[in-house]
């Protein structure tokens, strides 16, 4: 028998540190206003660190669609961020950076703590958010307005802490209420257009959760804790794939931390290679 004593949730600890560090980073200009240059300032929509411009690529896309023009400054900032997530994995943003996710995780804990029972647990397909993202881009194009930026709860969580203004506050409150009473992680899993955007980007990610089929005992712990959607783990746990390749994976590491059998790891692997290996495995299984 294997030792089932609880192990240290390494990934979650690291991830929490990063999440709070990001939160703090965005608050620095307000916590300690240093005369002159702040080494960092801005919001999640756009910021500057040590003079390097960083812009939310989905926001930038909306601006490009809305204004029907492309500006270099905008591109530079957006491409920098885009490249980062493109190389690691799109929804790493959701798992490691986004403050809304952090807060929703916290809400989820609270809900469990207070044992709030949901009368409905609405489920929406996780691909819906891609459609929402597309609609938003279309709307931006049609209305000449960066539509989502007006309601964006992500920017607003930051701004909200700072300025307490904006419609985003309402969308954020709506999300929290939904989370606590009606649906589990519906926002992050299925609705958030930024998540949708990164879901698409995530296809190209070069870091993956890898399974060791020899160790997996199919306890399904991993599926229960998955922040994205349990179904992204189905191919690896139940269908013999080696790598989790779904665009939705946030590399949050929860599945790794909760696997009592050490069957899961996060490994770097080129996306194409990972897919190829998955396919080969499938072919192997079929043939076997």
């Amino acid at each position: 028998m294997k030792n089932h004593s609880k192990k240290l949730p390494k990934w979650t600890i690291v991830r929490r540190i990063v999440q709070f560090a990001v939160l703090l980073l965005f608050l620095t200009p307000f916590l300690a206003e240093i005369e002159g240059e702040n080494f960092f300032f801005g919001t999640l929509s756009s910021s500057e660190i040590l003079g390097i411009m960083l812009t939310d690529p989905f926001g930038a896309l909306q601006i490009i669609f809305a204004s029907k023009t492309v500006h270099t400054v905008l591109l530079i900032g957006a491409v920098t961020i885009f490249a980062f997530y493109f190389l690691i994995r799109g929804r790493v943003f959701c798992g490691w950076v986004c403050p809304v996710n952090l807060i929703l995780e916290f809400c989820n804990r609270l809900r469990k703590l207070f044992k709030i029972k949901k009368r409905y647990d609405v489920k929406v397909n996780r691909y819906t958010k891609i459609w929402i993202a597309l609609i938003i881009l279309a709307l931006s194009f049609a209305s000449s307005l960066p539509v989502y930026e007006m309601f964006n709860p992500i920017g607003t969580v930051m701004k909200g802490i700072i300025f307490a203004t904006g419609l985003g506050v309402w969308s954020f409150i709506a999300i929290v209420i939904a989370e606590v009473f009606f649906a589990t992680r519906i926002w992050c899993r299925s609705l958030c257009p930024i998540g949708g955007f990164y879901q698409v980007v995530g296809k190209a990610g070069n870091f993956h959760v890898k399974i060791d089929h020899d160790k997996c005992i199919h306890c399904n712990h991993c599926k229960q804790v998955c922040l994205a959607d349990s179904e992204i783990l189905v191919p690896v746990v139940d269908q013999g794939a080696i790598y989790v390749t779904a665009g939705d994976c946030m590399l949050c590491g929860k599945c790794v931390d909760h696997c009592n059998d050490n069957a899961l790891r996060i490994v770097p692997k080129l996306a194409l290679v990972a897919k190829k290996e998955n396919d080969m495995k499938k072919v192997e299984e079929k043939s076997a």
């Binding site: 300032f41 801005g42 809305a66 000449s144």
Partner: peptide, 17 residues
């Protein structure tokens, strides 16, 4: 105003700056 509304990403950086 129209192109301003189209181009402003509502990031608040100008406010902070």
């Amino acid at each position: 105003e129209d192109s301003f509304l189209a181009q402003c990403i509502r990031c608040d950086k100008c406010v902070q700056a």
